[in-house]
Design a protein around this nucleic acid. Structure first.
Lengths: 187, 187
DNA sequence: GTGTTGATGTATCGTGCTGATATATCTCGC
DNA sequence: GCGAGATATATCAGCACGATACATCAACAC
């Protein structure tokens, strides 16, 4: 999941790890932040795979007086997408695995919806709604079955969980609706 | 986190792994299920620590005709809390670490609130509210700062995340309020 | 009776992420 | 000139997931 997020951000503009992490946190917001402990290994993995490339480290900064542009402080590793990386990213965006339906996966995919094909968007939204509907139904059933046996707090926890799931289903339905309106099926 | 959940469930009644997993899933509901890949190693760890104990495996079931009670099919490992385990569980419930404020941790702690001291309950609820308030404020600020630059989908994601966080803060406030009413501060 | 499905039940493995920690450097105010 | 805090990279133990494997057992079908 980090892979697609990193490629997506680097697709917009080259960046170094620290900035990547900050943008990741503000982009995904509610859904997970990703720590450096996974970010740096991922960067190395992507580099080994040839998807991303390190801009010249510039051990000797030529002219410290020049304040603008080519800033690359010592130790700073600025990454950018390679041609293969762009292609790979496009491929990733065009396919939908089951991981696109869980919390982190869905959030990540949605963050790059602007660059995702309309039919894939719809598929992801519907898959996620399916998943959340099932989860909500499961909780509703469980609640109905064991309501009497549960203490006040467990009940509160479950009811809040159920309401959240229901809210998300409604939200997804709206997104799906507007997705369908914007690009009608066949007409 | 699995540790406290397992101890808590075994504190109610002895159980084997498979049942533990099912109860865990229905108890925590929205908040995580825990897979066998972490459940079984945890059970072994708890057993090595002496907090839980295995009821005799009964390699030879004495009377297969007897349909009730002492059922222990071959291979079934039924665990129960030891005296040390009960003590340890009580200790865990009486302390509050920072892990009690994240999603999984908070859900787990709340699931055993009925057995938790009132002042600890309040501390956990307020810590969680603090955390969620900060998260919501962070998202609000980020939204205000970058609203124009964001595409429709990122905006939707962030707004939904913000609403969820705000809803949880309100929910927590209600819980805190009723916690304070039930057991007034000093008066 | 035999076959096949689905639930029960225990177990391991590779992979990925977190949270803590270490270590520098840069920037800004004082 | 100096300390505080942001910037920046990196590693590690521990935990959890998802997949997978392998058995047993009840039920119902044919």
């Amino acid at each position: 999941m980090l892979e697609i997020a990193v490629l997506g951000l680097l697709n917009e503009s080259p960046m170094h790890g620290y900035e990547l992490r900050k943008r990741l946190a503000s982009l995904l917001g509610a859904f997970r932040a990703f720590s450096y402990g996974s970010l740096y290994p991922t960067l190395r993995r992507l580099q080994e795979a040839g998807w991303i490339d390190e801009e010249a480290p510039l051990e000797q900064t030529p002219a410290p007086s020049a304040g603008f542009a080519g800033r690359s402080k010592r130790g700073k590793r600025v990454y950018k997408l390679t041609a293969e990386g762009k292609e790979h990213f496009a491929t990733l965006l065009a396919e939908v695995g089951p991981e696109a339906y869980d919390d982190e996966g869905f959030g990540t995919r949605l963050a790059f919806f602007a660059q995702t094909r309309s039919d894939i968007r719809l598929q992801i939204l519907e898959g996620r709604r399916q998943r959340m509907t099932e989860q909500a139904d499961g909780m509703r059933t469980s609640l109905a079955r064991t309501r009497e046996r549960m203490d006040r707090y467990t009940l509160q926890l479950q009811e809040h969980g159920l309401e959240s799931a229901d809210r998300e289903v409604r939200w997804l339905s709206e997104l799906i609706e507007s997705e369908r309106t914007a690009r009608p099926p066949l007409g």
